[in-house]
Design a protein around this nucleic acid. Structure first.
Length: 495
RNA sequence: CGGGGCGUGGCGCAGCCUGGUAGCGCGCUGCCUUCGGGAGGCAGAGGCCGGAGGUUCGAAUCCUCUCGCCCCGACCA
């Protein structure tokens, strides 16, 4: 090989990526840079809190719309409960408070006064009872619905709220783990244990379907081990995603709370035969961390790739103007296309800014817009559009008639959605390995090149050597997959 | 809260070891040529070097203390 060809090969190897470092070079840094490049969020002045920028929030709004519809289809009604919870409420359930105490933000004052030394303000007006900022709302919703439920006729009661919650986190990361995050929390109450358990399982199904079909994120459905359970729950069900770096992400959870919260909050009802009974409750939630899961599942070295169903824009139209005489006509042609697409329920963004064309193109790539459309004089004169798919790139660049494009765009987006899911599923499956013994597991986790999760016999959970495995390699049991009927456990690193 | 790394214009960095009052790339502003996968020229704007003390004639640079960020753990959605 000549020096020249060696040089050329080297250049090819280091093909310029829109995001540096690449995923392979430094995954955590890549993740943060994708968020920055896509203009989705940034850190807030308060550690652990984030500012969700319009493009990132638009993803959340699409997420909300799709999930909210599914929740309502289950017969759940939305409501809103307060941010502040009396300390006495949360203190009632010992196991629950034990689980959350360390991460509760506490409000102790209700007034600010000038500091004695004249510099700044200090808290004054101490509250007779401190309040906590909700880390979750089981207690206040339990206390409230205890007043609403008196008869078996009041059950089932199904409530959901879209809210922010706060958990004082040690190690925050944008979207994946923030002190304040956005979520929905559902709280259902039933007359029987069978109903509450079936409900917890049912809501997990809703989450799994939503993850796969809307977010294009493959998930494993299963049950948490007792150690990993929600504080106070009888059973915690989870969907786990395996991200591109092989770590697992608990993506949605559903808890069968049994009578734990009914007992502490006094959710009692009179049954048909006149006896006083305690209700059985569930709770279930999915949060803004999924936006992080979305990035870590679909992003590549050129930035974000949005699954069409949550993409803020399905199509970005980039008018290309070489000569000012054409400008008005080209923009007009582009606007006409935009209107046509909007009539097809396509979310269209027109980029008529005066940025340079390559900057517009790369901006759209980094934001992960599924389809880029370029409109210049050639398209205008021939009644065409030129379009490129984000997931395939320049090889998909096609010029065809506007009619042909409008006829296929919906199917094209649906196809992209499906292909993104299949690609993610292939990766996920490749990262799930079987281990036949704890020794084999130790071997796997000690190799630096090993990425992914291990599936092993659930009986290993009882062995002392398993605890050592967890400690030595910072891995945890993620779940006992339903598919294996509780006989297997998935173990690995997690976010 | 432990272990490691880092704080220098909007972003990424050099300068620090061997003190002399700040530089590079990208971005930004203006003009011209450009524009279909990251264009070029010329002219500009922008930083009391995270903060507070100290040493010194003089500190981005040396010392002490602080604050913040990132990574790896413990905790967790």
């Amino acid at each position: 090989m000549t020096a020249q060809s060696a040089q050329k090969k080297n250049n090819q190897k280091k093909a310029k990526t829109a995001i540096t470092p690449t995923r392979e070079e430094n995954f955590p840094e890549w993740y943060q840079n994708v968020i920055k490049a896509a203009d989705m969020a940034e850190n807030a002045p308060v550690r652990g809190c984030m500012i969700i920028k319009p493009y990132g929030y638009a993803v959340w709004e699409n997420f909300q719309r799709e999930l909210d519809r599914r929740i309502k289809d289950e017969g759940v009604k939305n409501a809103y409960f307060p941010l502040l919870i009396p300390l006495s409420y949360i203190a009632k359930e010992a196991e629950h408070i034990d689980g959350f105490a360390k991460e509760c933000a506490v409000v102790t004052h209700h007034r600010l006064e000038a500091a004695p030394d004249g510099k700044g303000l200090v808290p004054a007006g101490e509250l007779t009872e401190p309040m906590i900022i909700r880390p979750t709302s089981e207690t206040i919703i339990g206390e409230t619905i205890a007043k609403w439920v008196t008869s078996y006729r009041d059950l089932p009661l199904k409530l959901n709220q879209w809210a922010n919650v706060m958990r004082w986190e040690m190690r925050p990361r944008l979207f994946l783990r923030t002190a304040e995050f956005l979520w929905q929390e559902g709280h259902n109450a039933f007359a029987t244990a069978e109903e509450s358990n079936a409900d917890a399982r049912r809501m997990l199904e809703v989450y799994a379907e939503f993850s796969r079909n809307v977010l294009a994120i493959p998930v494993i459905e299963g049950e948490k081990t007792p150690e990993e359970r929600f504080p106070g729950a009888m059973a915690t069900y989870t969907i786990e995603a395996i991200l591109q770096d092989g770590k697992a992400l608990q993506s949605g959870t559903s808890h069968d709370l049994g009578q734990t919260f009914s007992r502490s909050a006094g959710i009692r009802y009179q049954s048909q035969d006149g006896a006083e009974e305690l209700a059985w409750t569930t709770s279930w939630g999915m949060s803004s961390r999924m936006v992080g899961g979305l990035i870590m599942t679909h992003g590549d070295d050129d930035g974000m790739q949005m699954p069409p169903k949550v993409a803020p824009h399905h199509v970005v139209i980039i008018p290309i103007v070489h000569d000012d005489g054409d400008r008005a006509k080209i923009l007009d042609y582009a606007e006409t296309l935009a209107r046509r697409l909007k009539e097809l329920n396509i979310r269209v963004e027109m980029d008529a800014s005066d940025r340079k064309t390559p900057d517009k193109l790369w901006g759209a790539i980094k934001q992960g817009v599924p389809v880029r459309v370029e409109i210049g004089r050639r398209e205008m004169e021939e009644g065409n559009v030129t379009h490129t798919r984000r997931d395939i790139g320049r090889d998909s660049k096609t010029t065809e008639s506007t009619d042909a494009f409008c006829n296929k765009i919906t199917a094209m987006l649906d196809g992209m959605q499906e292909e993104m899911y299949q690609a993610a599923l292939t990766r996920t499956n490749a990262m799930l390995h079987d281990a036949k013994s704890l020794d084999e597991a130790r071997q796997f986790f000690s190799e630096k090149s090993s990425i992914g999760q291990l599936r092993m016999d659930a009986a290993f959970l009882q062995e002392d050597a398993f605890e050592k495995l967890q400690k030595d390699f910072a891995v945890t049991p993620r779940c006992l997959p339903f598919a294996d009927e509780g006989k297997k456990v998935i173990v690995g690193k997690a976010y």
